[in-house]
Write a protein that binds this DNA or RNA. Sequence first.
DNA 1: TGCTGCAATGCACAGCTGTGCAAGCGCTTG
DNA 2: CAAGCGCTTGCACAGCTGTGCATTGCAGCA
Lengths: 356, 356
Amino acid sequence: MTADKNSTTGDKISDKLRSVSALHVARQAGVSRSAVSRAFTPGASVATETREKIMRAAEELGYQVNDLARGLLANQSRLVGLVVTKPEVGFRAHLAAALTKALIHRGNVPVMINTGQTEQELISAQKTLLGHRAEATIILSGSPPSSFFELARRNGQPLVVIGRSEPEADHIQTDGGAAAKLAAAMFVARGMTKLGLAGSLSGTPTITEREDAFRAEAARLGAEVVIARGRDTDYAGGLQAGRALIDGQSRPQAIFCVNDLIAFGVMDHARQAGLDIPSDLCVVGFDDVPEAGWLAYRLTTFRQDPETMAARAVALLDLRQREPDLAPIRQRLSVPLVVRGSFVPHHAGRFPDSSS
Amino acid sequence: MTADKNSTTGDKISDKLRSVSALHVARQAGVSRSAVSRAFTPGASVATETREKIMRAAEELGYQVNDLARGLLANQSRLVGLVVTKPEVGFRAHLAAALTKALIHRGNVPVMINTGQTEQELISAQKTLLGHRAEATIILSGSPPSSFFELARRNGQPLVVIGRSEPEADHIQTDGGAAAKLAAAMFVARGMTKLGLAGSLSGTPTITEREDAFRAEAARLGAEVVIARGRDTDYAGGLQAGRALIDGQSRPQAIFCVNDLIAFGVMDHARQAGLDIPSDLCVVGFDDVPEAGWLAYRLTTFRQDPETMAARAVALLDLRQREPDLAPIRQRLSVPLVVRGSFVPHHAGRFPDSSS
DNA sequence: TGCTGCAATGCACAGCTGTGCAAGCGCTTG
DNA sequence: CAAGCGCTTGCACAGCTGTGCATTGCAGCA
């Protein structure tokens, strides 16, 4: 029996499979529940002996502070939402991983909402996150409607949009336009006048920005540009674009691909068609995913650094927590060129941040 | 003023940045707070007119049911933890994505704990998840100590381990041993007697199982096996293993790689050394990540289907929820061979589930 | 010895929701 | 017309924690 002064009911800890609460620990340690709470609160006033007694009891019972109750009281749950489509593909996988790591390091709990791009799906994701009182939401893909931002604002939930310009919220984007422009300039500087652009029909703002900038700069420099777009911004799309660009009668001398995955598809199709890269065809990509460094590709590409982007996003969270009422902040990251075998610019040293 | 009967204090909704609660909605709609709760509870008894009135008020205020409080009361938070190391790499990325999708479809909220393999890190991850009263934890990588399972059990939290045999918890694994055995048999059936095994020094049980099974079967069939291991189970490791296997004086005729990523590294090194695949060297991998289908590789490999594994994991959660006291369940998935260009077995039709 | 001050501890409330229980109300039926 | 019944709705409690406030006990000091 081990008769403690169990008052009325609820003596059994595993009663109805409820988990261990502070009350159980308090009874076990022979102190009040407040003491337990204080023992787990850094800087609270507890006698060392009491704290040790409590900690021992907690250890024995396997007690863990209930973050739901704690979050309910403090109105913050440590949860941070990541809204992302196809988080397994290409650069997004690396960005998502870097973000989860950075968030955990910050003491947050990353919630990964893997969802479609539909307005309906995005709003449903937001409802889930608001319901769980997530401290912030980071959007990696998709273009939420205006009501999305409105709802987040009303509930005081900070928002960070990555990879896209978004005047209504804090956002981080890479300077894809500048990169695409540089690609065109580099091609022309090497004396090429027939250029190809491998894009996609996805219509993502990020992708469109790169396409437009490349076309504009090429036109400005008097080069001819053939455009082909795959269905998605992935390897299969690259194969499609590659077919359209290479099998035609007027093959370009160099192709800028809006994406590394697209580039791999283009390169594979080109080689299947018997072309050598870079002597018959130059290719430049965007992202610098690890596969770009593989011997099969050795792709010259613009580097987006997932760790840097994640660090910026987290810093934005910190800032927004301190200053909730600031106007939307915009960060634009430069994308250094990584020169590998698929294209070597004229004076590699002249281009910013180029590395081997 | 729009004088409602605001009793004492706390009229302002955005007071102290607290989000909208059911009480606010109740006031706005002129009903009791219970009515609001019922309006958001499917199947509760509310008049249609009242429900509409409440919903309108909720819409206006941007109200969202507080899942923290709801979870506190019901002692379940809808959260499910995914514990994974390097979730951006290879098959794990696809598995993690499939799991998040399946969990969301089930109405859960996936929490992605991206952490190292250390016992310390795993336990810290568990504390986080227990603290947030996650309904279950799914472990994709790492070998937690016994205390991990003990703690989960005491807190009534179901555990699913994927990819590894784990007698203390429910687990799902693919039959890597059978696959490796089949690989050896297929090589010998094609008359090859000098075989290579590209493994890794990671020491993961999954990887070790494949290595051991391949060696055992090859030995049983009287074939010679050279083993090389890269540092990690990734592309770089494949390059290392490839160098060791191919640059030596006694080059194998076929290589079984414990991983597709390893296989890509091996293939790339082989081609750089001037070998043709499959005429000079046959290669078989494991996982069937999308890159295996790329034209640059066309890798014959054993397929692990992330969607199937995710579906099984979710089914296991359902079952465990209904029957908490069952003994640990073990599921073993077969891995069909996907035949592509890097190796064609003697009678492709004879092997189970082989497809193009 | 007696007083002051500080550390430690318990009480009670707030934070938000779901739900059992009882009461109110309108409608149907004999 | 009266009784009874079923649908609604409000009250109050439970679930777990953090913390302000008051109280207690002890040590230090005059």
